Amino acid sequence: MTASFSKTIRQAGLVAAFAVSFAALSSSPSFAFSAEAQQMCTGDAFRLCSSEIPNIPAITACMYKHRAELSAGCRTVMDHDVAAQQSKVATK
């Protein structure tokens, strides 16, 4: 096996783990990300929090810890999703 092939396999595994992590977050009643947040934040999560994958609570905490370093698009959709979740909780 060549080094580049191994690197490609590792990256594919990380992408799959991250996708599963975000999918699980999306199905969590306490903290759900929209498909838009998944799309806008995947790069930021890999860049800032790859060491936390696949630990869902750790990824979430890491993303909030690094909020100032998030891309503008990710920060916007995360803020929107959090506000929507808070609104749902407040109306119950």
Rank of each mutant, 00 (worst) to 15 (best):
S71H: 06
D81Q: 01
D79K: 10
I53G: 00
M40H: 12
A32P: 03
L70D: 04
S34F: 06
S4N: 08
A61S: 13
A12I: 12
Q39N: 04
S4I: 07
P54Q: 03
M1D: 10
A32F: 00
D44I: 01
L14Q: 08
V82G: 00
T8L: 14
A16E: 05
T91Y: 10
D44T: 04
C41I: 07
S21D: 01
L14M: 12
F5Y: 09
A35G: 13
D44W: 02
Y64L: 14
R47A: 14
A84W: 04
C74A: 03
S21V: 00
A58M: 11
L48T: 05
I9R: 12
T8F: 10
F18S: 11
A12D: 07
A16N: 07
M63P: 03
M1S: 14
F5G: 03
T2K: 04
G43T: 14
D79P: 06
K7E: 15
C74P: 01
A58I: 03
A24V: 13
A23K: 11
Q86N: 15
K65E: 08
P54R: 02
A32W: 00
A19E: 14
T76P: 04
Q38I: 10
F18Q: 12
T60N: 06
S27R: 15
V15W: 05
F22R: 05
V89Y: 04
S21K: 00
A45I: 07
T60V: 10
T60P: 00
A58S: 15
T91G: 10
Q85Y: 04
V82A: 02
A24C: 09
S27M: 14
M63L: 11
Q11T: 08
Y64F: 15
P29Y: 01
H80E: 10
A3R: 10
T8W: 15
F5V: 14
E69F: 09
S28Q: 03
A37Y: 01
M78R: 00
L48M: 05
I9W: 05
R47C: 09
F31S: 06
Q85S: 15
S27H: 09
S34P: 03
D79S: 13
A3S: 12
S30V: 06
S87Q: 14
R10E: 15
Y64M: 13
A84T: 12
E69I: 05
A16V: 05
F5N: 07
A23L: 07
S87R: 12
S28D: 13
D81A: 00
F33R: 06
S34W: 03
E52V: 03
P29M: 01
P29G: 02
N55W: 04
V20L: 08
C49Y: 00
G13F: 02
A17R: 11
A12H: 11
S21I: 00
T76H: 11
T76G: 06
H80M: 07
S26R: 15
S28F: 04
V77T: 14
A17H: 05
